[in-house]
Write a protein that binds this DNA or RNA. Sequence first.
DNA 1: ATAAATGCAAAGCATTTGCAGTAAA
DNA 2: TTTACTGCAAATGCTTTGCATTTAT
Lengths: 141, 141
Amino acid sequence: MRKKAKSDKKAAIPGFKRTPQRLAILEYLDGNKSHPSADLIYRNVSKRYHSMSFATVYNTLNTLSQAGAVRELTIDAGRKRYDPDTSHHHHLICVSCRKIVDVPDAIAVDLPKGSARDFTILGSHVEFYGKCSACRKKQSS
Amino acid sequence: MRKKAKSDKKAAIPGFKRTPQRLAILEYLDGNKSHPSADLIYRNVSKRYHSMSFATVYNTLNTLSQAGAVRELTIDAGRKRYDPDTSHHHHLICVSCRKIVDVPDAIAVDLPKGSARDFTILGSHVEFYGKCSACRKKQSS
DNA sequence: ATAAATGCAAAGCATTTGCAGTAAA
DNA sequence: TTTACTGCAAATGCTTTGCATTTAT
């Protein structure tokens, strides 16, 4: 058995053309734990791959999230964040610097009885809010 | 003891001027379980209170959330939603119509040991994803 | 009186879209 | 070759801001 890469992002997405731009984005995202915004992705990928456009970044991210290859995080008010780790896990967010770190899915989360009402539950996501040590040191308040 | 109103939103926010616009917004929000966006708030309040401006809605909402009188929800990608219920509770979101319903805070959520790392935990919020019955009926998929 | 809020319009971000040109399959 | 992607720029949607006027205190 061949040694596996960090992920299989480059594998089978039907009708997905392997363009150099997309490969550059996938490469940047592969194993990336920083939960970057589209803008950050654009800036970083641009460094290596010149002539990258915002439209391509957005198109690619939308295609990838529809295909389930990337998870769209709605954690920040102003912007979407993207997570290449599509496994079920939760997040810990620094309320000061908005840094986001992963929390393994080892949490038992269940709706209180009767809460679901007429809903069919599909999943859940826990956001923990806190202050990272860097921000704690910087500020007294 | 005097009968209590639905909430005490109209009470003490230091340096907060009780303008008719603000009172109209507070009245609309009081007891409101629909988790409205700024736009919805604007449209609804405008019906009753003519000459309401977007700027005022946004200014008021920002003031209120800074004062802790309203909770800003970052659940929808494109827009903020506002919740006059500032007690600790969670949410159930319909993935089709984006309807949001409250979930009482009867969930034990704890970080797995060692996950907090260098974070000081301040709180948490659980988002449950599902499909409401109305959307289930409308769609087969 | 005076400090703060309103309303307007313009500006600011993040994201999307139309379309002609280009490249992957 | 055909279908889909890129890149640009314009457009859109939500939110904020500057500023002159008005208003609550």
